[in-house]
Simulated scan of single mutants.
Amino acid sequence: MIEITGFGVVLLFLIGGIAFLMVTLLIGKVLRPKRPTPEKQTTYESGEEPSGTAWGQFNVRFYIVALIFLLFEAELVFLFPWATVFGDEQLIEITDGLWGTFSMVETFIFVGILLIGLAYVWAKGMLEWVRPKPKGSDFKSKIPAAAYEKFK
């Protein structure tokens, strides 16, 4: 009888996973219809016809809003487990209520730090959405514009 070590089990799982993936992709390639049309070959831009190049100006405030969103999502990730543990009456009874007081103070400190961060971002004006005026580029390329027509 052959005995498989822990590394052998991991190797078998890796081989099985890769084999499953390859078989699934092969079955999909064999079964899917192959009817390309010019409409299917175009770039998808949220239902709109693509126009211009991809080098358009992008408002940097999108990134700031995304970072602030992630900050408050992280807050929720930490507050949900706290709420479930804080609501456990048996745990609070075992510690004579000290656990509840400690966790409540700790959570207020955590939320307070986040509110200080929010106040800082607000005071710096990072939450105000000001539309920037588009600026044209004065860059002169050495490549003629007709050369780009091949790539459209």
Rank of each mutant, 00 (worst) to 15 (best):
Q57W: 15
K152S: 05
V60Y: 15
A145W: 05
L31D: 02
S46H: 14
T101F: 00
G136Q: 14
V111Y: 02
F20T: 03
T107W: 02
T95A: 00
S46M: 05
V65H: 12
G52W: 01
V9L: 10
E106Q: 00
K135Y: 05
K133G: 11
R35A: 11
I15Q: 15
G17H: 13
L26R: 02
R32P: 00
F69E: 08
G112E: 03
A19G: 05
L67S: 15
E3I: 07
V9F: 12
P38R: 05
L115E: 08
K140C: 03
P81H: 15
P38T: 04
F102Y: 04
F72P: 01
V85D: 04
P50L: 06
W122V: 07
I143P: 01
P33M: 05
L12C: 12
G52K: 03
S141T: 14
F58Y: 01
G16N: 07
L25H: 08
T43K: 05
G28F: 03
W122H: 10
P38V: 00
R131T: 04
R32M: 07
G87L: 14
L31P: 00
L26Q: 11
Y44T: 09
W99L: 00
G52D: 06
F7M: 08
L67Y: 05
G6Q: 03
R61P: 06
T43E: 15
P36K: 12
G125C: 01
F78V: 06
K150Y: 07
I27P: 02
P33S: 15
V130Y: 06
G125W: 04
T42Q: 14
E39A: 04
M126W: 07
T24V: 05
E75W: 06
P81V: 12
W129V: 13
